[in-house]
Amino acid sequence: MNKKLAMMLVCTATLSSAVWAAADEKSVAYTAAKESASTEFKLAKSKCDTITGNPKDVCLAEAKAARVHTEANAKAEYKNTVAARTSARKDIADADYDVEKAKCGSMTGNDKDVCIKQAKSNKVAAVANAKADKKVVEARVDANDEKVTAEYKVALEKCDALSGQGKDNCVAAAKSKFGK
């Protein structure tokens, strides 16, 4: 009995260390991506310092957008949730809007107004798509949960035809298969 307990503890410790290693690996990758984004931003920003006027504004907006893209995607990968991915897409849409708006800065009159409206339209569309995709993923998860529950009920119903140890084994197998 003590050998079984010792083996269970060793297995549990091994599994726990594997989970922590994977989590630690994700954390290291996230931190590295953030540092890389910061370094790339500083380099791009220094290149923008030699430019003046609206091209400088565009250059800075593009540098900031590149940093946001990298950081947002890294954060979404690190958290690995639908909400994190949606948030990343919204942040990227905001950054892209800032770039488009900066590009409109060199225009005048109606051309500038149209350009800004188009940039805003692109942002609204990107955010709406991110929200819609989130709802689709959530709906698919809910549908899959309902499907698994229905299949589990069918498996339990099949077990009702059995009796004794056979029924117990059937129920245990169904619970195991469907994670109940």
Results as ranks from 00 to 15, higher is better:
131 K>N: 12
107 M>T: 08
119 A>K: 04
3 K>T: 07
61 A>I: 06
101 K>P: 02
109 G>A: 08
135 K>Y: 01
12 T>R: 01
36 S>F: 05
128 A>W: 04
138 E>V: 04
152 Y>I: 05
1 M>Y: 11
131 K>H: 09
83 A>E: 14
15 L>N: 02
179 G>S: 13
41 F>P: 04
50 T>M: 12
13 A>L: 14
108 T>K: 15
18 A>S: 13
130 A>F: 03
73 N>A: 14
114 V>L: 14
146 E>V: 09
145 D>H: 11
3 K>P: 04
43 L>A: 15
129 N>P: 01
100 E>S: 15
80 N>V: 02
89 R>H: 07
159 C>K: 08
20 W>V: 06
46 S>H: 03
141 V>S: 03
4 K>A: 10
107 M>V: 03
117 K>L: 12
50 T>F: 09
76 A>V: 04
99 V>K: 00
160 D>R: 05
154 V>S: 11
175 K>S: 09
49 D>S: 11
164 G>T: 06
71 E>P: 01
44 A>R: 04
105 G>N: 11
3 K>H: 11
76 A>M: 02
52 T>H: 13
61 A>W: 07
56 K>D: 03
2 N>E: 08
16 S>P: 01
105 G>E: 13
70 T>I: 15
89 R>N: 12
162 L>C: 11
106 S>K: 12
12 T>I: 12
9 L>M: 14
115 C>G: 11
130 A>H: 04
94 D>T: 00
49 D>W: 01
164 G>E: 05
1 M>F: 12
121 S>L: 10
30 Y>I: 04
103 K>S: 12
49 D>R: 04
40 E>V: 02
56 K>T: 01
28 V>Y: 05
168 D>C: 01
2 N>A: 11
31 T>K: 07
167 K>D: 08
96 D>V: 05
109 G>P: 06
168 D>F: 03
158 K>Q: 11
4 K>I: 08
136 V>T: 14
84 A>C: 02
132 A>F: 15
133 D>G: 15
77 E>W: 09
45 K>L: 12
120 K>E: 13
107 M>D: 14
36 S>M: 08
22 A>W: 07
133 D>Y: 05
173 A>D: 15
81 T>N: 00
163 S>C: 00
130 A>S: 06
83 A>T: 10
166 G>Q: 08
53 G>L: 03
85 R>I: 00
121 S>M: 10
113 D>S: 07
148 V>F: 05
22 A>F: 08
85 R>Q: 14
38 S>E: 14
